[in-house]
């Protein structure tokens, strides 16, 4: 009986437990998206707020009709006809995809080395990967400004070594953007990869070796397939935010660098068009909704599998 009443109590308590975060996320996460959606079909006006139409509930149905009648797709038409936007979408996707691939190629050996390191060293290595991730993102991007500048550390070193005569133009180019993204997002790839590689059952590798497989073959047939969930998780963790990246293209990129996050920010802060930047945000979400859903699905499944 007590058990039963405890269960009933449990349900009552549960409602309270979920209510707080649920309401919070509805108000501050979901509702803002609906507002973005609405503003993306509004018009810029010089007023407060700087868009129209605004729904006036006191006018009742007539106000509602007037409000809906004032909405249209002209921001989308503008964005779709805009060469800068086309270029931004293309560059964002290419830069994010290529960077993610480079991060995977660099991150995999690091994660693999960590997972094969002596057991007592592993926590230390883990902290060493996490630490730069906790240190400011902005600061890490800033550090590269000093390295890649014309008279920066890299050019000085290369010149001192006699490898180049003229300084390389690196800062304010897409190369610098690639370097910045690879550097900043590397821990996002290493951590999920390490998590799966560390769990790999070594008896499988021993079995493969006993059956005569050379190390590269047992890696390719055993370790690599088992690490696929980590590869997918790490790649999504890098790719999705990289598409919308703003700080890196802004500080390390040049005038040729057009990425969606930067375009959105320019529309918002320089061109002061809230409605166009809302339309860009909606389009960015449409581009990313597939990867985001895959990521959510994996995240939910990884917790359910752990039960």
């Amino acid at each position: 009986m007590r058990r039963l009443s405890a269960r009933a109590n449990d349900i009552g308590r549960s409602r309270l437990v979920v209510a707080g975060p649920y309401l919070w996320l509805l108000l501050f996460f979901l509702a803002p998206f609906l507002i973005v959606l609405k503003i993306s079909v509004s018009h810029d006006v010089i007023a407060q707020p700087p868009y129209a139409p605004v729904l006036d509930p006191s006018k009742g149905w007539a106000g509602m009709r007037e409000f809906v009648g004032g909405l249209d797709l002209q921001n989308y038409a503008y964005v779709f006809g805009d060469a800068i936007f086309h270029e931004s979408v293309l560059q964002s996707l290419v830069i994010a995809a290529v960077s993610t691939l480079i991060i995977l190629l660099i991150g995999y050996p690091i994660a693999y080395g960590m997972a094969r390191a002596p057991r007592r060293l592993r926590p230390l290595l883990l902290i060493a990967v996490i630490l730069p991730f906790w240190t400011s993102f902005l600061i890490r991007v800033y550090a590269w400004m000093g390295i890649l500048a014309r008279e920066g550390f890299l050019n000085q070193t290369l010149r001192a070594l006699g490898l180049i005569d003229e300084p390389l133009e690196l800062l304010s180019t897409n190369t610098a953007v690639y370097i910045g993204i690879v550097y900043s997002y590397l821990p996002f790839m290493v951590l999920p990869l390490y998590a799966v590689l560390e769990k790999t059952d070594e008896s499988l590798l021993e079995a493969a070796a006993d059956l005569g497989a050379p190390p590269w073959k047992s890696f390719w047939l055993v370790t690599f397939p088992l690490s696929l969930p980590g590869i997918v998780a790490g790649s999504l963790l890098c790719f999705i935010p990289a598409v919308g990246e703003f700080v890196i293209p802004d500080l390390l990129g040049g005038s040729e660098t057009l990425m969606l996050g930067k375009t959105l920010w320019t529309e918002f802060s320089v061109n002061r068009s809230w409605t166009v930047s809302a339309a860009v945000a909606v389009l960015m979400l449409i581009v990313l909704v597939g990867p985001i859903l895959v990521y959510q699905h994996m995240q939910a499944r990884s917790f359910e599998g752990g039960r």
Binding site: F29, V36, L236, L237, I240, P241, V243, G244, E245, F246, L260, G261, L264, W265, A281, M284, L285, L288, P291, I292, Y295, Q296, Q299
Partner: peptide, 9 residues
Amino acid sequence: APLVMPEVI
């Protein structure tokens, strides 16, 4: 979703 949502959005 917010874990991977681009910050600009």
